[in-house]
């Protein structure tokens, strides 16, 4: 029963992808790249044109396609938007730049108020790190919260331009690039020092206060007449906990890429 339901879900998704491609009014760049797909019709013609030109400039300058997709589908929620976005990106040669299909794509479902931001290709993934996605999301999410779609997309394009410029310079925006403030470093140092000082001084003080009552009588145990007569270790029950692995890469920075070659981040707004 579950298997049948899953098959139907996948079919629906592929049909959705097909319909999106069929009924949208695609804008083709000179290299036949589909940059903006406004299926939810949230952009006016002027807004659309302005965003398209900006996306086109970025794509051509950095050889990394920057896509915007809007949809209005109540069946597409947070659980399925990632799969939908990745399927859409791989479904056509019109997504991504060149043979390596380098690119970013921001998919926004206006009815479920959720989004997925992905990067693809070696250069795309290198330019838009996990940390970069976090910062970029903060840039556009406040606009989306007020349904200010054009400004949100403009922020997305501006930030994409910034991270691509940094990547071309050989220093993509990443966690490691953000130096810790001296205040934080010395704050942590002070906390550590407080513990060390307390332990050291109390240890010195403890050596001066040696007249203490004894709680044990270990010195007087007669080992010859001491024995454990019964031992029983019985398995009772098992508990299982599941925690997400905080990869060292994400702690240090970099980009987490899945088996399909995508990196991504999503959420609600």
């Amino acid at each position: 029963m579950m298997r049948k339901k899953r098959c139907l879900g996948l079919m629906n998704m592929l049909i959705a992808v097909f319909l999106v491609l069929l009924f949208s009014v695609p804008v083709f760049a000179e290299n036949d790249t589909l940059l903006i797909l406004d299926d939810a019709s949230v952009l006016s013609e002027e807004e659309y044109a302005e965003l398209y030109l900006h996306a086109y400039d970025i794509t051509e300058k950095y050889e990394c396609a920057v896509h915007i997709v809007t949809i209005d589908d109540p069946d597409l929620d947070m659980n399925s938007i990632q799969q939908f976005s990745e399927s859409l990106y791989l479904s056509s040669d019109q997504f991504g730049y060149g043979p390596s299909k380098d690119g970013f794509m921001l998919v926004v479902n206006v009815s479920e108020r959720c989004y997925w931001l992905l990067a693809y290709g070696d250069f795309g993934n290198m330019a838009l790190t996990d940390y970069g996605k976090e910062i970029m999301s903060e840039e556009f999410l406040d606009d989306f919260s007020f349904d200010d779609w054009p400004r949100g997309f403009q922020d997305y394009l501006n930030f994409s331009e910034q991270v691509l410029e940094m990547a071309v310079d050989g220093a993509p925006l990443d966690k490691a690039e953000q130096p810790a403030s001296p205040l934080t470093s010395y704050g942590i140092g002070a906390f550590f020092a407080l513990i060390v000082s307390f332990i050291t001084c109390e240890s010195f003080k403890g050596k001066m206060q040696t007249a203490v009552k004894s709680s044990y009588a270990h010195h007087y145990i007669d080992m010859l007449n001491t024995n454990i007569e019964f031992r029983n270790d019985r398995f009772a029950y098992r508990t299982t906990t599941r925690s997400k692995i905080q990869s060292s890469k994400s702690k240090e920075g970099g980009t987490t890429v899945n088996k399909k070659g995508f990196s991504g981040k999503g959420g609600k707004f």
């Binding site: 024995n227 019964f230 019985r234 029950y237 098992r238 692995i245």
Partner: peptide
């Protein structure tokens, strides 16, 4: 490890000990 998750199984045991400890001349 299972994918991106770390699965920790904790086995609980009922441990039972019966014994005699002898003491001599506790002052």
């Amino acid at each position: 490890k299972q994918g991106q998750f770390l699965i920790t199984n904790t086995d609980h045991f009922d441990v039972h000990r019966v014994g005699t400890v002898s003491f001599e001349k506790i002052p």
